[in-house]
Computed example of a mutant assay.
Amino acid sequence: MSLTDFDLFGHPVAAPQNVTPPRRRVVSQAAKRAKLARHLEKSNNLVLFDELLDFLKAPLLKQQYDMDATFASDVGTVAVIEVDEDGNTQDEDSALVIPYEAWGEEWVTDSNGLAWSKEGLLFTQVRLFWRSMEELALNNNEQEKWSVLRWIFRPAIWKHYVYDKRIGRSHCFEVHERDETFSFHNCCIAARVDEDTVREGVRRNIPAEVVKAVEKVCKFD
């Protein structure tokens, strides 16, 4: 097998069959808030979900970091497309299809049959890191902040469950942060920042109860 016969995690993959580019779905803030509220109500967190949602409305970090212009986000200049929970938009012309274009020399192929160059992979890791930091500095993005906090404070080793139809039960795999391509650990390495320093900086800006709530949820991943 050649290097292109494996995905980003080293698993063998079949040759791509007419890969269709994924369609981007933008969900309204109201739908995201409702989804997060339902999740927190059932998760038995250490803080009341209403208090957590109100806290996550406000920025957690100040945008005082130095970011290379190559990785800067254009989010502030992009119009918001409102999409309901069924994926419908008011304007049919607003439907987005992001084309897949190979970038650089092919290095690995993922499970979707898409080829990644080494440069493209590193760029995506760095962009993910800085985009996540930006989410912590924005207003009224509770769902995004919650996802970023879970990403940052996820344990180095977590359990991943895969259901096996043949035997009617799940298999449990222990996954290390080194083996997850877009883990906080690997994205920090790509961005050349110290993960412990960033994590502690975030921790100092949020109440201890919120950190405990995030860690409690992460244990069930």
Results as ranks from 00 to 15, higher is better:
Met1Gly: 02
Met1Asn: 02
Ser2Pro: 08
Leu3Met: 03
Asp5Ile: 00
Phe6Asn: 04
Phe6Arg: 01
Phe6Ile: 05
Phe6Pro: 08
Asp7Ile: 07
Asp7Ala: 05
Leu8Asn: 03
Phe9Lys: 08
Gly10Asp: 07
Gly10Ser: 02
Pro12Thr: 11
Pro12His: 00
Val13Pro: 08
Val13His: 10
Val13Gly: 01
Ala14Pro: 10
Ala15Tyr: 02
Pro16Met: 07
Gln17Pro: 00
Gln17Thr: 02
Asn18Arg: 15
Thr20Ser: 07
Thr20Phe: 02
Thr20Pro: 02
Pro21Glu: 10
Pro21Leu: 02
Pro21Asn: 01
Pro22Ile: 02
Pro22Asn: 10
Pro22Trp: 01
Arg23Pro: 04
Arg23Thr: 02
Arg24Met: 00
Arg25Ser: 12
Val26Ala: 03
Val27Ile: 03
Ser28Ala: 13
Gln29Glu: 04
Ala30Ile: 03
Lys32Gln: 05
Lys32His: 14
Arg33Ser: 09
Arg33Val: 07
Arg33Leu: 04
Ala34Arg: 05
Ala34Met: 05
Ala34Tyr: 10
Lys35Asn: 04
Lys35Ala: 04
Leu36Gln: 07
Ala37Pro: 08
Ala37Gln: 06
Ala37Asp: 04
Ala37Asn: 06
Arg38Lys: 03
Arg38Phe: 12
Arg38Pro: 10
His39Asn: 06
Leu40Glu: 11
Leu40Arg: 03
Glu41Ser: 02
Glu41Tyr: 07
Asn44Asp: 12
Asn44Trp: 06
Asn44His: 09
Asn44Ile: 00
Asn44Glu: 09
Asn45Phe: 10
Leu46Thr: 13
Leu46Asp: 04
Leu46Cys: 00
Val47Thr: 14
Val47Cys: 12
Val47Ile: 08
Phe49Arg: 12
Asp50Leu: 10
Asp50Asn: 08
Asp50Gly: 07
Asp50Met: 01
Glu51Gln: 15
Leu52Ile: 13
Leu52Ala: 05
Leu52Val: 13
Leu52Asn: 00
Leu53Ile: 14
Asp54Gly: 11
Phe55Leu: 08
Phe55Lys: 07
Leu56Thr: 11
Leu56Met: 11
Leu56Glu: 00
Ala58Ser: 11
Ala58Met: 14
Ala58Arg: 14
Pro59Asn: 10
Pro59Ser: 09
Pro59Tyr: 12
Pro59Leu: 04
Leu60Gly: 03
Leu61Ile: 06
Leu61Glu: 07
Lys62Ala: 14
Lys62Gly: 03
Lys62Cys: 00
Lys62His: 11
Gln63Met: 08
Gln64Tyr: 12
Gln64Phe: 13
Tyr65Val: 13
Asp66Gly: 00
Asp66Gln: 15
Met67Gln: 15
Met67Cys: 15
Met67Glu: 15
Met67Asn: 04
Met67Thr: 14
Asp68Trp: 00
Ala69Leu: 10
Ala69Trp: 05
Thr70Gln: 12
Thr70Asp: 11
Thr70Phe: 03
Phe71Cys: 00
Phe71Val: 07
Ala72Glu: 05
Ala72Gly: 05
Ser73Glu: 12
Asp74Gln: 13
Asp74Cys: 03
Asp74Gly: 01
Val75Gln: 14
Val75Ser: 15
Val75Phe: 13
Thr77Asp: 14
Thr77His: 15
Val78Lys: 15
Val78Arg: 15
Val80Asn: 03
Val80Phe: 14
Ile81Pro: 06
Ile81Val: 15
Ile81Ala: 04
Glu82Thr: 02
Val83Met: 15
Val83Phe: 09
Asp84Tyr: 02
Asp84Gln: 07
Glu85Asp: 14
Glu85His: 05
Asp86Lys: 12
Asp86Pro: 00
Gly87Leu: 11
Gly87Glu: 08
